[in-house]
Design a protein around this nucleic acid. Structure first.
Lengths: 193, 193
DNA sequence: AGTAACTCACTATGCCGATAGGTAGTTGAG
DNA sequence: CTCAACTACCTATCGGCATAGTGAGTTACT
């Protein structure tokens, strides 16, 4: 259900095609929400049918065309409404921790490998997100620049601050995971001396 | 796909009925993996059909009966295999952080309410998990006691240590979320002075 | 002129899980 | 004795998402 609000958030900045949006999901929004194109295109159609978006055929090259969507009044309202509604939290489903709880069943080396994979995964995210924060601080984020260009001056501070705040939270998460997995490695060593 | 391994993990301790397992998912395993009964019963049937489990009709009261499952050789092998395989990490999908990234669209009070809900949610989890760690340390966890009763003495240390380690990770996560949301509250105040 | 890489859009299948029911038997408190 | 709460099991529907594939048009490079 969050997909449509992620789409609305992006389209609030400027009209885009399904493909443009898909590209955003591989970079900017992709850091908090992932979606494949096979989910994006039908969702856009549905949102248009429900009146949240309007699509427009735009010529592309000599013979090609593409469909550009923009947010309607109703779409803006729906987004604002979502933003002002408190989120429901999903039930817990943590494969990594489920496995950790039964780690005595794994070969010591497999257990270590699991922890290393955990570290690698979260270190990778950590790096991406830290880079993003750096871009925000230096004002070199193209995505943020586009967003600010479509935002009244008075809101710039908020937009930048919340963006940064979001990445800080993700970074804290990832750091905690890395610390945890490193402690796991030590624990495995200790238990298998 | 983790559901079946969670079920195998529980049934490795002792034979149980679908209902017993469902109860476990409301308490112990429920802390890392949630599943409704409507998912558990069919999965047990499927696992039996695939030879991972064997079910046995057991009388219950004068006329009633229940179906108790135990793990087969093949089931044990499948579980061990899973435990020795490194996990694939799912794509990111974080509703709370998605919303945070666009918090300038929310009314300040709604933004605060969101942060408070975040704090409440994760504080609740924190409390549950801390209680679990206390139980582990004091040896008053009934679930752990049953597990240890079916485990060779030599493995007790590992079982307890990994269990505790798991909860520690969850606690660290929740603490990070609470810290983050508290910073969010301060940020919202600052931006709306 | 050819071709690789990219843009653009869509369809199909299938699993996982949420949600919401339904039915039958048992136990325990008053 | 009876009624509520619990145990036990099952079914149906629906949305979200993964995965995999199709196919047409464009751009850039050699």
């Amino acid at each position: 259900m969050s997909l449509r609000y992620a789409l609305l958030a992006l389209l609030n900045v400027e009209p885009m095609t399904g493909y443009d949006l898909f590209k955003e999901f591989e970079t900017s929004v992709g850091h908090v929400w992932h979606a494949p194109d096979s989910q994006i295109y039908p969702e856009l159609r549905r949102m248009e049918a429900e009146g949240l978006l309007e699509g427009e055929e735009i010529p592309w090259g000599p013979r090609g065309k593409k469909r550009q969507y923009h947010v309607t009044e109703a779409g803006l309202l729906a987004f604002r409404n979502w933003m002002n509604t408190t989120l429901e939290y999903a039930r817990i489903r943590e494969p990594a921790h489920l496995k950790a709880a039964y780690l005595e069943w794994a070969e010591p080396e497999a257990a270590r490998e699991q922890m290393r994979a955990h570290i690698k995964h979260h270190s990778g995210l950590l790096e991406q997100w830290s880079e993003k924060v750096r871009e925000i601080d230096e004002g070199t984020s193209p995505m943020l620049a586009r967003r600010l260009a479509h935002t009244p001056e008075a809101d710039h501070e908020k937009t930048v601050a919340y963006k940064r705040f979001t990445y800080e939270g993700l970074i804290a998460q990832a750091e905690a995971e890395v610390v945890w997995a490193n402690r796991g490695l030590k624990l495995i060593d200790k238990l298998n001396e």
